[in-house]
């Protein structure tokens, strides 16, 4: 089982890294990180904050685009091209296929994030001419970005099992946006005075992926490390949510006919 999941994951990784769109996104991300140096150099006194904010945001945005654009085709492309017939006629369980696909794209994102983070640290070194312990703490923010990617890939995978790539991209993107404002939505619900609105807001808060708690870029830019309880709860939340998303994808995929 592990061997088959690994084979599918490595194949998905190979497929993803041969996508031209991936390289375009990486180049854009590195250009943006590079241009952050320019913005930082004209920002008196807030060079570092400016660079970290722009650099980490670039990693987050371009990684998100990669997760969505590659993730939405993970399963639907295999179905459309009928390559799924080849895979499932071999001794491959359907859940192995789904898990392999998920891990393959996650691996792609981890490698790309590592490349972009390398670019970001180069830019930081260029501006500051030294590296310190506080710079290493920025990796905590990168880790939180990766946790978001893990959830986004799970969402894209789930939608890829049930709808077309365009709809999958739309739904995934919408959920990401809504997920970033869930804290505010819940606050509005409480403040509205309406019991129904409060309950609906609470339901959305618990049901939809909550990305608002993963936003630590600004905190990192101001040299504040991520508290350990937040590291633990964030990791557990992502793990739980991804498990739910993958389980739902498997349940749907098990009943699909090709």
């Amino acid at each position: 089982m592990i061997q088959r999941i690994r084979t599918i994951a490595l194949h998905t990784f190979k497929e993803s890294v041969r996508e031209k769109v991936l390289y375009n996104l990486i180049v854009f991300a590195l250009l943006l990180i590079g241009s952050a140096v320019l913005f930082a150099s004209i920002s008196l006194g807030i060079k570092r904050i400016m660079l970290i904010n722009l650099g980490l945001s670039s990693i987050a945005v371009f990684g998100l685009l990669m997760a969505i654009f590659i993730g939405i085709g993970l399963v639907s492309k295999e179905i459309d091209r009928r390559t799924i017939h080849n895979i499932l006629s071999k001794p491959v369980r359907r859940f192995e296929f789904i898990i392999g696909k998920y891990l393959g794209l996650l691996l792609t994102l981890v490698v790309n994030t590592a490349i972009m983070t390398g670019g970001f640290y180069l830019a930081l070194y260029y501006v500051e001419r030294h590296m310190g312990g506080e710079d290493v703490l920025l990796l905590e923010a990168v880790y939180f970005i990766l946790l978001q990617f893990a959830i986004v890939v799970g969402l894209a995978l789930l939608f890829s099992c049930i709808s077309s790539p365009i709809l999958s991209a739309f739904f995934t993107f919408c959920l990401y946006i809504v997920g970033n404002f869930l804290g505010d939505i819940r606050w509005f619900g409480r403040e509205s005075g309406s019991v129904i609105f409060e309950k609906v807001a609470a339901l959305l808060y618990y049901l939809l992926p909550n990305f608002s708690d993963f936003q630590v870029i600004s905190q990192a830019a101001h040299g504040k490390g991520v508290p350990s309880y937040l590291m633990t709860s964030g990791s557990l939340y992502a793990l739980l949510y991804v498990t739910i998303l993958i389980s739902a994808s498997i349940l749907i995929f098990e009943e699909r006919e090709f």
């Binding site: 194949h11 190979k14 497929e15 041969r18 009928r82 390559t83 017939h85 080849n86 006629s89």
Partner: peptide
């Protein structure tokens, strides 16, 4: 199994 009108991975 050989599917009808098989299609494989272009990138491989």
């Amino acid at each position: 199994y050989l599917p009808e009108n098989p299609s494989f991975y272009d990138h491989l």
